[in-house]
Simulated assay, not measured.
Amino acid sequence: MSTIRVVWGAASAPTAMASYDAALAEAGVENYNLVSVSSVIPAGVDVEAVGTAPDLGPAGERLTVVEARATTAGPGQVSAALAWSRSVEDGPGLFYEVADETGPDDVERRVREGLAAGQELRDWEFADSHVAVETESAESGTYTTALVLSVYGESEPIC
Rank of each mutant, 00 (worst) to 15 (best):
V47M: 09
R62Y: 13
A25V: 07
E61G: 08
E67K: 14
S39R: 12
P58H: 00
N33A: 13
V29L: 12
G51S: 04
V45S: 05
A23F: 07
E61H: 11
E61V: 01
L34E: 06
L24A: 08
S36M: 12
V65T: 15
E30S: 15
A43T: 09
E26H: 13
V29Q: 06
A43M: 08
E48I: 13
S39V: 02
L24I: 10
P42C: 05
A59F: 03
V37K: 10
I41V: 14
T71N: 04
A23L: 07
T52A: 09
G57P: 05
L63S: 07
V45H: 02
S39T: 11
V45C: 01
A49C: 04
E30G: 11
R69S: 10
V65C: 03
A59D: 13
G57R: 01
R69G: 02
A49R: 13
T71E: 01
A70D: 03
A49H: 13
E61D: 11
L63Y: 10
L24Y: 11
T71C: 06
G51Y: 11
V37F: 15
G57H: 10
A70I: 05
S39A: 09
P54K: 02
P54W: 04
S36L: 12
G57T: 02
E26P: 06
S38V: 15
A27N: 01
